[in-house]
């Protein structure tokens, strides 16, 4: 997949994920007695944040070529870059009503980031199992 297509796909995925999490948060808040009301500009700012968040993907290009140290260093920079974009966008687009909402956005961000990596690694582990059992049937004897 070329980098433009990758950025576009990720933009859409991130925007959808933010809308999804906001939706869940709104449902939870409603049953807790606090209704969340979206402003007219909120949906478009979410899409714009999705596009901005997809840009640091360039940092992870050819990640499979790096050694472990470089990989984790780049992932950390990627995570921080996304955090700055998300919290910065929240500040510019006035998503936060108080410090509490800023903290909850920060917590949600790190949970989602870790979840995406864990899910992706879990899927890779499933592939690992499938490949190993297929290799068992064709392996040469030494």
């Amino acid at each position: 997949m070329n980098i433009t297509k990758k950025i576009f796909v990720q933009s859409m995925a991130i925007a959808t994920a933010i809308l999804f999490l906001n939706g869940i948060n709104a449902v939870i808040q409603h049953f807790a007695g606090n209704d969340i009301v979206l402003q007219w500009y909120h949906p478009i700012t979410i899409v714009m944040t999705g596009i901005l968040c997809a840009l640091p993907t360039v940092l992870l290009r050819e990640a499979d070529q790096w050694d472990r140290k470089t990989f984790w260093a780049r992932v950390s920079i990627h995570c921080l870059a996304l955090y700055v974009i998300v919290t910065g966008a929240g500040w510019i687009f006035k998503w936060y009503t108080d410090v509490k909402s800023f903290i909850s956005v920060s917590i949600i961000f790190f949970i989602v980031y870790a979840f995406v990596w864990l899910l992706s690694h879990w899927l890779d582990k499933q592939d690992e199992k499938k490949i190993n059992s297929a290799l068992d049937t064709i392996r040469d004897e030494e």
Partner: peptide
């Protein structure tokens, strides 16, 4: 493929294949 003992997934999506002679090669 017949000389691969096993593969293991690493964070980032690449895999490491251990060959029958003990050598390790990277699968992108």
């Amino acid at each position: 493929l017949r000389k691969i003992r096993n593969v293991s997934a690493e964070p980032g999506g690449r895999m490491v294949a251990v060959l029958l002679n003990g050598e390790r090669v990277i699968i992108s």
